[in-house]
Design a protein around this nucleic acid. Structure first.
Length: 333
DNA sequence: AACTTACACAACCGCCGGAAC
DNA sequence: AGTTCCGGCGGTTGTGTAAGT
C-alpha cells in the first residue's frame, strides 16, 4: 500500500525558501539536472525533502517561468479553459506558456473567481448565478406588492411592512447592478450571450464566443481523441439553460397565491428593518413577528434574507445593501 | 503609531496512478 | 501479485504585506 510521505522524515526544513537554498538548488540542477527528486536534496546539500525541492523548482525557480501580471488574453484563456476543464489546473497551465498550475490556481481563486461572481456568473458552472435568480423569481410578488401598496396608501392609508419594502428596494438595486454589468461588458458573460442571442439557444464557449468576445476554439485542448472531443462538445451544447430561461418565463399568475403577507407596520419597523439589513441579521430576528410573517419563505423560494446571508461577504452584496440603505424608495415617486 | 483585517501568493499536504522492483 | 518509489495533481494552509480603523 501507500508509502510514507517523504516529508515525514524529521529534521527537514519547511516553510519559505531562503536565497541560499534557492541558489543551491539552481546550481545543482543546472549542473546535474534534477534526476531523482528524492535523492536531490542530499546531493545538493539541502535540508529539504525532494518534494519540496521539486515544487520550488517547478513553481518558482524554473528559468522558463513567466512572472508578472496576467495579461487580459491570459485571463480570457484561463476563464474559457476553466469553463471547459474545471479545476484541471495543470491542463490549463499547459496552454499558457510560462505559467504554472499553482500560479493559475492562485490567480483564479484570488482574482478571476471574484470577477465572475461580480459579473453574476457562477465560477463553477460558468452560468448565471441561481442565487440571484431566486430573488428575481420574486419579481412578480414585489410588483404586485408595490401596486397593492399604492392602492392601500391611496384608499385606506395602510402600509406594507418595512421588510417587504426593503426586499423590493434590494431587488430594484440588484436589477440596476445586473444591467450595469451587462452594459459594461459587451458579450462578456453567458448571461449576456443568452439574452443577446436566444435565451433558449445552444450557444457555448466551444461553439462561438469567448468570454471576452473573441472567437476561440478550445477543442484542441480536450485531447487528441476525436470521440472525446465530440463527447465534450456535445455535452456543452446539449446542456439546457433551464434555470434562467424558466425563471424568465415565469407567469405572474402562477404566484398569485404567494403574495407576501401584509401586516400592520409599527412606526419603528422601517428603522428596524434597515438595521437588520445592515447587520445581516434578519434571519435570526425571531423576536420580531413581522419579519417572519413577511419573509418569502414559500416552498420553492429561498428566503431573501438567506440569499443575502449566504453572499454577504461579497463586495457585490455589500454594494447592494449599501444602496438599499441610501437610495430613495423607487415606488413612491 | 499601534492594532486589526483582508488579501495575495508561496508552500505544504494528502491522495492518486503508473513504473519499477 | 504485492510493495515501494516517484512524480503529478488539486485543495488547503501559512505567511508576509497592504489597507483600514
Amino acid at each position: 500500500m501507500g508509502r510514507s510521505p517523504c516529508c515525514d522524515e524529521n529534521g527537514l526544513k519547511k516553510g519559505p525558501w531562503t536565497q541560499e537554498e534557492d541558489e543551491k538548488l539552481i546550481e545543482h540542477i543546472q549542473k546535474h539536472g534534477h534526476g531523482s527528486w528524492r535523492a536531490l536534496p542530499k546531493q545538493a546539500g539541502l535540508n529539504r525533502c525532494g518534494k519540496s525541492c521539486r515544487l520550488r523548482w517547478t513553481n518558482y525557480l524554473r528559468p522558463d517561468i513567466k512572472r508578472g501580471n496576467f495579461t487580459p488574453e491570459e485571463e480570457e484563456t484561463i476563464i474559457n479553459l476553466h469553463s471547459l476543464l474545471g479545476n484541471k489546473w495543470s491542463s490549463i497551465a499547459s496552454n499558457l506558456p510560462g505559467r504554472t498550475d499553482n500560479e493559475i490556481k492562485n490567480y483564479w481563486n484570488t482574482h478571476l473567481r471574484k470577477k465572475l461572481l461580480q459579473m453574476g456568473i457562477d465560477p463553477v458552472t460558468h452560468r448565471p448565478r441561481t442565487d440571484h435568480l431566486n430573488v428575481l423569481a420574486a419579481l412578480p410578488q414585489l410588483i404586485a406588492a408595490a401596486n397593492f401598496n399604492s392602492l392601500m396608501n391611496l384608499n385606506q392609508n395602510v402600509q406594507l411592512d418595512a421588510a417587504t419594502l426593503a426586499k423590493a428596494q434590494i431587488l430594484h438595486n440588484m436589477i440596476q447592478v445586473l444591467s450595469t454589468n451587462n452594459n459594461n461588458i459587451p458579450c462578456s458573460s453567458p448571461l449576456t450571450m443568452q439574452t443577446n442571442n436566444n435565451i433558449f439557444g445552444q450557444s457555448s464557449y466551444l461553439e462561438n464566443q469567448s468570454l471576452f468576445g473573441q472567437p476561440q476554439n478550445f477543442s484542441h485542448v480536450l485531447g487528441a481523441n476525436q470521440d472525446e472531443k465530440l463527447m465534450v462538445e456535445n455535452q456543452m451544447i446539449d446542456q439546457p439553460l433551464d434555470s434562467f430561461s424558466s425563471l424568465m418565463q415565469m407567469d405572474v399568475q402562477d404566484d398569485h397565491n404567494s403574495l407576501p403577507l401584509l401586516v400592520a407596520a409599527s412606526p419603528e419597523e422601517p428603522k428596524q428593518s434597515q438595521m437588520m439589513i445592515k447587520n445581516k441579521d434578519v434571519r435570526h430576528d425571531t423576536s420580531n413577528p413581522s419579519s417572519s410573517n413577511s419573509s418569502f419563505t414559500q416552498d420553492h423560494h429561498q428566503p431573501w434574507c438567506d440569499t443575502i446571508d449566504d453572499e454577504a461577504g461579497d463586495s457585490y452584496w455589500k454594494e447592494i445593501i449599501e444602496q438599499t440603505c441610501t437610495e430613495p424608495w423607487p415606488f413612491h415617486e
